Computed example of a mutant assay.
Amino acid sequence: MDDGNPLGEYLRARREQVRPEDVGLTVRGLRRVPGLRREEVAMLAGVSADYYLRLEQGRDRNPSAQVLAALADALRLDAPATDHLMSLAAQRAHRAPTRRTGPDRVPSGVAMLLESLGIPAFVETRTFDVLAANRHASALAPGFRPGRNRLLDVFLDPAERELWCDWDRAVARLVAGFRASVGAATDDPRCVEVVGELSLRSPLFRSLWARHDVRPVEGAPTELVHPEVGPMTLLREKLALTGTDGQVLVLYHAEPGSTSEAALALLGSLAATTAPATTTTAAAAGPAAAEDLTRP
C-alpha cells in the first residue's frame, strides 16, 4: 500500500516511467535511476529542484494549479492521469482518513432493472466489489457474482485467467482502472484490504500497483474466450448510480449483427435455464462473510 504521501508516491512513480529522450533530454554517462531525475522534472516544469523535492517528500502540501499543470506536462500525463494528480493534491491537505458508514446496498429499483436487461449487467463499488448481478453476468464470468471482488478474482482465480484472451493486458488495465476508481481514497479500509492481500499474494500486482497507472476502463473493448460459447469481443460501459456512494452499473454488450452478439445471445439462453443471481451483498452479511466471498 501507499504510505501517507500519495501525491509524492504518484510523482515519483510517474517520473520513473518517462525516459529522458521522450522529453528531449540528452543522456550522458551511466544513469543510476530509472526515468527522470528529480532535478530534470523540476527543470521541465519550471520550478526549483528544492521545491519539487519538498513535493515528493510531502513537505509542501499546497501546490498551485499552475504548478500541477506544469508537472503534468513535464511528466507527459494524459487527461485521466492529470485529473488523478489534481485529485491527489486537492485531497491531500488536512484530509481525514476515509471511513465507511455502513454496508453498501443496491437501490431496489436498480436491483429489479438488472434482471430485466438481456445483457450481462452488475453493480459494483469503487473497490470493485460486486454487489448485485443478473444471470447473464454470472454466466459470462466467474467474478461477476454478488460477493466477489473483480480485482482479487482476476489475479487469484484460475478460471478468470482462462477467460481473458490477453490476461496480462487485462490485469494491467484493471489495476489502472482500480486506481482511477478509488482516486485519492487509497486509505479506504476495503481498498487497504484488497491491495494488501494482492500485494502479499501476487508479485505481478505489486509491480503494476507501484506504477501508479490511472485509466478509466468504461467503453473499452473486451476480448474473452468463454468455455461454453467461444470467443467474444464485447464493449463495456460504466454508468454512475446517483444517490449511492460511488456505485456503478456495469454493462457488457456486443456490436449489432456480429458473431459476438450471437454468442452473447446464446449465453443468455443458457443463463435463462439457471437460477436467478442473488442480489444480496457481501457487506450486508457482515465482515466475515464478505471476506470469505471475495476469495476464489
Rank of each mutant, 00 (worst) to 15 (best):
L77D: 00
T273C: 13
R190M: 02
L117M: 10
L174F: 10
H226Y: 07
R169S: 09
G35H: 08
V175P: 14
E56N: 12
A210N: 14
T101C: 11
L30P: 13
S258I: 12
V229G: 01
A137K: 02
V41C: 12
V250C: 08
A284N: 13
R145S: 15
R32M: 06
V41T: 11
A185W: 03
T222A: 11
S269I: 08
L30N: 13
V217P: 06
V192R: 05
G4E: 15
P221H: 10
R190L: 03
L77G: 02
Y52K: 00
V110A: 04
N62W: 01
A93Q: 08
A277C: 15
R150P: 07
R148P: 10
V106T: 06
S116K: 02
R95F: 03
R38D: 14
R126Q: 10
C165Q: 06
S199Y: 02
E291T: 11
E197S: 10
V248G: 13
E193W: 02
A170L: 05
W164T: 06
R211W: 02
V194C: 07
S260V: 07
Q17L: 13
A170G: 08
P34E: 10
V192K: 05
P221K: 02
F155K: 02
P203F: 00
A72H: 07
A265I: 09
L71W: 04
T280K: 13
H136V: 03
L44A: 09
E40M: 09
A290K: 10
R145Y: 08
D166P: 15
R76Q: 07
R28H: 12
H253K: 05
A141W: 10
S181Q: 08
G58C: 10
S116N: 11
A49R: 04
V110K: 05
V182M: 01
L131S: 06
G46R: 03
A132G: 11
E218Q: 10
G4N: 13
L156M: 09
Y10R: 09
R61N: 11
D213P: 15
M232H: 06
R38A: 11
D168A: 14
P63Y: 01
N149Y: 03
V123C: 09
T101G: 13
E21H: 14
L85H: 02
D2L: 05
L11I: 07
A185S: 11
T294D: 08
A70K: 01
L200A: 14
R76G: 02
L241V: 05
A275S: 13
E218W: 01
A65L: 03
S64Y: 04
V217K: 03
V130A: 04
Q91G: 01
P158L: 05
L88V: 05
A288G: 14
S269D: 15
A45H: 11
T127Y: 00
E9W: 06
R150K: 06
L266R: 12
L267V: 14
